[in-house]
Design a protein around this nucleic acid. Structure first.
Lengths: 342, 342
DNA sequence: CTGTTAGCGCGTTCAA
DNA sequence: TTGAACGCGCTAACAG
């Protein structure tokens, strides 16, 4: 079913059909109606590939995330798709873990599709990707990456703000030995979080011996392993700050396994505030990083790049805050409880 | 960057470039190498839209799910994408809830993209979608839908198998008043599960009064509400079977809120076996429905439709079983414990 | 306001 | 084995 058949059936030229379908003002309402009638009757759908080919714009945004199975990302995907629907863009999702080979394949697919922009949300391994895309003139949105390239827009995430709140909250509860599970070491975001934790601890005069710093990977399993490791230590931490809710869930699960009560015996703080966090047992105190906000920022940045005429005063810098959300996985440090009870 | 520029640079015709890139045997190795050199040098990527236009095949499969934020689906998406990468297909994801308007928009986008097939995994609201797609000659994969249309392939999910195991497991533990949270009433899958539950209960002579049947929507919130409702009843159930792990999580969360111990005071069984299930506190006993298996089946069905020559003896029917996975959210019914203790 | 026409980038004939 | 030429379905000039 093509524009030609519609044209013949409606007894107009293909140009008129094209105009009618694209709602060009100048077309005679009578003809337009005739065209639409036929379109509906025969069930015609314009061919996006042909449109993309001739117009040079595909109306596709690519979205690269590291792990679609981490509940943090589906919320972003969801929001991006909503916005896509609203603005008539499609979202081409790519979840390709950290495998550099897969990443490269994903990049190839994306470039071949001539997407109008790509949001890279792997939170720390985007450097090579960004190079590839900018070389092909594909507008890019990334997190926490300074770049002078005009094609690159980025958002700064203030991890430290939330982490400081978390650390000070724990300290206020009397916790002194606070442990930290970071993200995968090769992720820049993980390094930033880790450094922020160290800084926030030392700010208030708290020590962080190396064994209380464990490198995780944002999975529940790593949380379990980390706590198992700490419990085997002569002095186990009384509180754990996790760089993701997933690892926090793992910590809580391991605590259950070991018969440790959260929060009485162990305080746990997560990071991300995935929806699940408030349904944990106990509900997880966590540092919120708004998925919606990230998605909104990403989309509007991509839109600015793809349609610069819409919004002349386009920013190239955006910012996102993080904030502690108090729930019920933290409590007074056990030693403090003892002090207060006699 | 187009095939013409490559041709000029490599001093061959565009036809030769095309053949070289597509690895056609007959092309002179010397020329092929020359072409590839240039391709690499200038960073040429063939335009997928042009290819799709001329070849009539887009190498895209669409995947429609109801809720990407329900952890059940990301696993499927993940697997589909892996397979896509392997077979050089892209997966166009669509998460459009139940809103019929969004569904229609999604269908439109998919058809306009001329996808080579679409897997509809909304588990029960696919009827109108299937009609739309088959009318456009788009091969479709659905769950639990009989259709004589050759373009439609489907898989039968044996919900009852796992549900029977769950019911009998609970009965064996001495539970008599077993409640059930179903999925959204407009989903066929939900109706099937509900009917299966009723049948499995009556099989073993157990009653199911209407107030023990609550219609949910596969969210954690509905699980919380359901338990709150049952607890307000004169006699609350001692066990709950949920039609999804998400609602089971909600039930456990509400039990915590009410000070009910799972499993001592209340046994809970989920459905799906999302990865999270084993990380719940306590780990959730649930009916497994393999996400990987579903994805594999969907993909191979789509591949059979898109490339019929690959696999001449293509089936049109597939089957998936469900199975109870025992963990720690179920225990002897409280009354049974009392009988045994004195 | 409408129709004719020239490509968009590529795969695929058909001759050479 | 190679290259010239056609057309996939559509938009956007330009002419009428």
């Amino acid at each position: 079913m093509t524009i030609h058949e519609i044209a013949k059936e409606a007894k107009v030229s293909i140009a008129t059909v094209s105009r009618a379908i694209n709602r060009v003002r100048s077309v005679d309402p009578v003809l337009a109606r005739r065209v639409w009638k036929v379109v509906e009757k025969v069930g015609y759908y314009p061919n996006t590939h042909a449109r993309a080919l001739v117009s040079g714009r595909s109306r596709i945004f690519a979205l690269i995330v590291s792990e679609i199975t981490n509940p943090f990302f589906p919320e972003i995907v969801q929001r991006m798709m909503e916005l896509g629907l609203e603005h008539n863009y499609e979202i081409l999702l790519n979840a390709c873990g950290q495998d550099p080979h897969l990443l490269e394949t994903a990049a190839r697919q994306i470039i071949q599709r001539r997407v109008d922009g790509v949001a890279i949300l792997t939170l720390g391994t985007e450097d090579t990707l960004v190079k590839i895309f900018t070389r092909q003139q594909v507008p890019v949105f990334v997190v926490d990456m300074a770049s002078s390239e005009p094609l690159v827009k980025s958002v700064h995430i203030d991890y430290e703000h939330g982490i400081r709140q978390a650390v000070q909250h724990l300290a206020a509860l009397g916790h002194v030995s606070i442990a930290f599970i970071s993200g995968p070491t090769h992720l820049k975001s993980a390094a930033i979080q880790k450094a922020a934790f160290a800084r926030c601890m030392s700010e208030i005069g708290l020590e962080v011996p190396a064994e209380r710093l464990v490198d995780g990977d944002h999975t529940m399993t790593c949380g379990m392993k980390a706590l198992a490791f700490w419990v085997a230590l002569p002095a186990r931490p009384s509180a754990v700050l996790c760089s993701s809710d997933m690892s926090a869930i793992g910590v809580m699960r391991q605590a259950f396994e070991l018969g440790l009560n959260v929060p009485a015996d162990l305080s746990v703080v997560g990071f991300d505030d995935i929806r699940l966090a408030q349904f944990m047992i106990p509900p997880l105190t966590t540092v919120q990083m708004s998925q919606t906000e990230i998605a909104d920022t990403a989309f509007s940045a991509l839109l600015d790049s793809a349609e610069p005429w819409r919004n002349p005063q386009r920013r190239r810098k955006y910012g996102i805050k993080t904030n502690l959300v108090l729930r019920r996985s933290t409590a007074l440090a056990p030693c403090r409880v003892r002090e207060l009870q006699p």
